[in-house]
Design a protein around this nucleic acid. Structure first.
Length: 594
RNA sequence: GGGGGCGUAGCUCAAUUGGUUAGAGUACCGGACUGUCGAUCCGGUGGUUGCGGGUUCGAGCCCCGUCGCCCUCGCCA
């Protein structure tokens, strides 16, 4: 790390260097002026070294030190000496030594920073983002970004060792229908035409397989113009992988090797492989979601059979109308007050649950306001079906299957946290497989791809593609870590006739298919190998590894919820001249005073 | 587009629920101090209570609007 300004970094000097004359450069982390001797901790991203300015060593350097402030940038020369025994600081790696400064130069002065460069100072996120360069100096952010770099390094090393090659794909590409909203880039040279920034390199990596570049990977930026969340940014990064001549197990096994290597080398943890698998149907049945948090139980149970026969009209009618009644048993929930149960209902309400029925599991049996609608046999059946133990609170939702699943999923997640059932340290990875190929949309009265339109149907379901499309399962798989979707992939369609059939199912006409995906259909006609792949959300992966609440903590320069960069002010207005060159005129509602 | 939370000194927060001169810690400034490492001690500066309007004798506090940040539903193949 030796440069024109330094012989060592601020993190590497130890007792072994005692007696050496060194040059250091860095930021003033803190200055402790004792009137005579002055201690300055010099910091760079490698560590911190205590530098001693003694007027007896150098009056000139000491005079400079008296004027120094936090975040000033300093270069100095001095002798490494062991600290007096009582002054050794065991908290830092360089704590055994100090540098006695003979000569020092102020390289850059810093204004008083808006907040302190230290982890124990809570700072509002808007201030952190406005002065991100200060925030990034803080140890926590440095750890985060270094961990991210380490994760990417291990991913690359593992894939390279297995023969994967890194190929870049374009950022300026073509808008495709379906999926997320595209970011558009106007073409100056082609008036009225627009590039789209890629939502993922999906089609390019498939084309690369057709082109014979078996085993591709890329750390790829993906861009989607949708509303932001704690784990969603308009631009994010995926580890994108594609392989030729593979079936599901090949891709999943390769992914497991990468993920296990990351956990081993970055976190020092062994995660057992192969990861457990459950089907989409099983996940929805037991957890009400396709990304189950399997670190704790409290599985969903179906009580529609009992509900159908009981006197509780809401239950009975739900089942009669083709819905269902399902519930979960919250251990120890018997102690919940009426108000606390109402609060639980409030957690289920946003997902459509119109009410939350409940029973308490007493020694004598089930009790509660709805108990009177069940005879004794039914109450026993309920308790049996719920697997309830004394002290449990049984919670039920009666509605359409989608509403029941979403409500109970939210309730289970909330209760898991509230009851302390979630072992925070556990790493629970699993695959969810056999997704439905299609999703029916009630509003537009048509099918959409659950994954994307290039996902292969399972061969045994292929003959139901037209007759019963809703029952066709896809050769798709999602990787789930602690209830967070880490990524997903599939074996792709490699035959043009199958691809055309799927397009037809999706209501993509021949003309539209040719216009939007013509190049893919054409490429498929020139010898496409069976192929498949996966994409892992890097930001989410890093977030889980560092235990952060938001992927903003994993990115150097994230955007706010309004998709703005508080540091640069992006997106910003542009000159009329620029717009004119791009053949663009703003609509009146977009005009604003500057 | 909907729901919720927050906004007071550079930063993090308080202000006895509408009461007189808006406080504390920290940062910053000045002073003291030759072994500290969250240095310590003494003193000091610092406020358009996000912004605009309203109610009131009186508003940081109540009402309306607006801006910003965060969480969330919708959305994210």
């Amino acid at each position: 790390m030796q440069t024109a300004y330094r012989t060592h970094t601020c993190g590497e000097l130890t007792a072994d260097h005692a007696g050496a004359t060194v040059h250091l450069a860095g930021w003033v982390d803190s200055a402790r002026d004792h009137g005579g001797v002055i201690f300055i901790d010099l910091r760079d991203r490698f560590g911190r070294t205590q530098c001693v300015f003694n007027p007896d060593t150098s009056a000139e350097a000491h005079a400079l030190a008296e004027t120094l402030h936090g975040e000033d940038v300093l270069a100095l020369e001095g002798e490494v000496r062991p600290r007096p025994a009582e002054a050794v600081n065991p908290k830092i790696p360089t704590g055994a030594i100090e540098v006695h400064v003979a000569q020092a130069t102020l390289l850059a002065h810093s204004e008083v920073p808006p907040f302190e460069v230290a982890d124990d100072v809570e700072v509002g996120e808007n201030v952190r983002l406005r002065y991100r360069y200060i925030d990034l100096r803080r140890p926590a952010m440095q750890r985060n970004l270094l961990t991210r770099a380490a994760i990417v390094r291990v991913m690359r090393q593992t894939l390279e060792a297995e023969g994967f090659i890194d190929i870049e794909t374009p950022l300026l590409t073509k808008s495709t229908p379906e999926g997320a909203r595209d970011f558009l880039v106007p073409s100056r040279i082609n008036p009225g035409r627009f590039y789209a920034l890629p939502q993922s390199p999906q089609l390019f990596k498939q084309i690369l397989m057709i082109a014979g570049y078996d085993r591709y990977y890329q750390i790829a930026k993906c861009l989607r113009d949708e509303d932001l969340r704690a784990d969603r940014q308009p631009e994010f990064t995926q580890l994108d992988v594609e392989m030729a001549f593979v079936a599901e197990d090949d891709v999943m096994a390769a992914t497991e090797r990468v993920v296990a290597a990351v956990f081993r080398q970055v976190a020092g943890r062994e995660v057992p492989t192969p990861f457990p698998r459950l089907t989409y149907a099983e996940a929805m049945r037991d957890y009400g979601t396709d990304k189950p948090d399997r670190r704790f139980g409290m599985l969903l149970k179906d009580v529609s059979e009992v509900a159908k026969a009981c006197e509780f009209r809401i239950f009975r009618e739900a089942v009669e109308k083709g819905g269902q009644v399902r519930g979960l048993a919250a251990p120890g929930g018997k102690a919940f007050s009426r108000k606390e149960i109402d609060d639980l209902a409030a957690h289920a309400a946003p997902f459509g649950a119109k009410g939350l029925a409940w029973l308490k599991c007493e020694a004598e049996g089930l009790a509660g306001p709805i108990a009177k609608f069940f005879n004794e046999g039914q109450l026993r059946d309920l308790r049996e079906a719920m697997g309830a133990a004394e002290g449990d609170l049984l919670l039920f939702v009666a509605d359409r299957p989608a509403v029941v699943a979403a409500s109970l999923d939210a309730l289970r997640a909330h209760l898991g946290r509230r009851l302390g059932l979630v072992p925070e340290d556990e790493v629970n990875l699993c695959w969810v497989t056999e997704f439905p190929l299609l999703e029916w949309d009630e509003e537009t009265k048509r099918h959409y791809s659950m994954h994307h339109p290039f996902t292969s149907p399972r061969p045994e379901d292929m003959d139901r593609l037209e007759s019963d499309p809703g029952s066709v399962r896809a050769r798709a798989y999602d990787l789930v870590l602690n209830g967070v979707e880490l990524g997903g992939g599939s074996v792709r369609i490699h035959r043009p006739d199958v691809q055309e059939r799927v397009f037809r199912l999706l209501g993509i006409g021949e003309e539209e298919a040719r216009q939007k995906f013509g190049f893919l259909l054409e490429a498929l006609r020139y010898g496409a190998p069976p192929h498949g792949g996966i994409a892992l959300g890097l930001d989410r992966f890093v977030r889980l590894m560092i235990g952060a609440d938001s992927i903003r903590e994993t990115m150097a320069f994230p955007k706010t919820q309004r998709a703005q960069c508080l540091m640069t002010g992006a997106p910003g207005p542009v000159d009329d001249d620029q717009l004119a060159e791009l053949h663009i005129r703003l609509r009146p509602e977009a005009m604003q005073e500057e």
